[in-house]
Design a binder for these strands. Sequence first.
DNA 1: TTTCGTTACGTTAGTCGTAAAGATT
DNA 2: AATCTTTACGACTAACGTAACGAAA
Lengths: 296, 296
Amino acid sequence: MLERIEIEAFLTLAEVLHFGRTAERLHLSPGRISQTIKALERRIGAPLFHRTSRSVRLTDVGQTLYTALRPAVDDLERAVTTATAAAHRQRTRLTVGFSTPWCGDLVIVAGDRLQEELPGCDVSIQEIQLSQPLQGLRSGEIDIQLSEFPINEPDLVAGPVIFTEPRALLVGTSDPLAACDSITLEDLAQTRLIPVRGNAPDYWQAYHYPAHTPSGRRIPHARPVTYWPETLSLVGAGRGSTIASLRAARYHPHPGVVYLPIEDADPIRYGLIWRADNRTEVLHRFAQIVVKAADV
Amino acid sequence: MLERIEIEAFLTLAEVLHFGRTAERLHLSPGRISQTIKALERRIGAPLFHRTSRSVRLTDVGQTLYTALRPAVDDLERAVTTATAAAHRQRTRLTVGFSTPWCGDLVIVAGDRLQEELPGCDVSIQEIQLSQPLQGLRSGEIDIQLSEFPINEPDLVAGPVIFTEPRALLVGTSDPLAACDSITLEDLAQTRLIPVRGNAPDYWQAYHYPAHTPSGRRIPHARPVTYWPETLSLVGAGRGSTIASLRAARYHPHPGVVYLPIEDADPIRYGLIWRADNRTEVLHRFAQIVVKAADV
DNA sequence: TTTCGTTACGTTAGTCGTAAAGATT
DNA sequence: AATCTTTACGACTAACGTAACGAAA
């Protein structure tokens, strides 16, 4: 394979047809151009240029080489440009996902702070579907997201817990439990849980929609649904109950739906998740900002 | 632009996915590969490989680069191969032209001698059309030819005179001159010369088919013909005369055609002609052999 | 005589291998 | 503990510029 300097010297000389100007353009001495071309000619096995002190022009073999080499080198440089652009995009663009409005609030603040800190970068924020909580990360559409733990996947990294929220049972007003101020996990055996259907990992699904109470009693499940508004409607219509963050009461009030704190349930943990192979500077910095913002 | 070693290291590593094997294949140390890849990553602006001591694999940016770079480099190598092949052909192939059978004899002997001397080379010999004596050279079909002088063209080189042949007038047996043993240039005024029409230079045309005798009398010209056999037929039919080498009498006898030596005409000079920009080793050697062969 | 391309030579930058260190399974 | 990548460092190659030389118009 040809050396970079050989390629550049040859192509430039073939276009300029002047050793001195070629040397100038490449910031080299004329002697070096002469030697380099000579080396290339030795390698190819024939003179590539007819030259006198008055004129330089391509030989037939030189023309053959030029015709084939020029577009190949153009492609090569385009390849580098493309990759460099992709690298720059990766360095400066960050797409952040969030699952709930309170995650969204935090992420938006952190995004603004990141852009103040790194003026060149370009943060975009989007909500993720409850039914497919990890798909955006895996497809590369989302670089990092703030969403519900537990997440324990080989291709993903879960950061520290950013904040927690107590859990609540959502029941219809006609439900016997609706009169209580709060409930315990054992009470879940009396309700029909409506889980969200999705391709979340099984352990995630089981954690958020348990099948048994701590004492081992079975918790009946209703038909799974795909979207959050649908769940709310079903609960309001007395078709079942569901478990969510207590905080959702303030963001998703619904007529006929009561939020009951579950006294003995672990709070829901929220944290950052990103792809193990996506460890860019902006991503790291964003994660730090979120951790810091959550401390306050 | 990328250095050769960067390209080779990147492509090989992208295919082998192993620093040690890449180093082996490129006859370098693993350290060098590591440094080279690192330098390339600095230039592109992002990691090209995910690597641990157990696995090496392309990042998204690395994949982008590989996909675009691989075909470009293939084209580049093809370009070099093509040019090298063209150079080799030019170094080892020689196509020799000749105008007359006696030129052909000499050229064939010289060609055989050349192949004995340079066993790798490949000589081919072909007759050139009288009507287009220089076209083969200019189109590149013929590398060197042995033919009639004078030739004085800026893009062609004429070697030394290899041999000379006396000139003769060819007349029909019914022509008044047919009874003579020989003629002089002044006698040409009594005949109708049949010239060969072609794109030979004007001075060549005028030299071989003069328009005036030495004393200035006009020599009538008949309609030009394109091929030598046609000329012979026309002369045999008494439709005119023509001028050729006296030696042609032995190679091209024709019923009804008489060859008359022209006593005071300069002999026809034969020599080698080649393109000024086609100065290969084989060509030069062939010319030397022809000169030497003519001396004997 | 001028303008270039080429050659010669001394200098230096950068590439290379060796070997030790660091990381990962 | 073993394997593989990375880093450190010293040696040496070859790329480079300067300047003199040579060829061509």
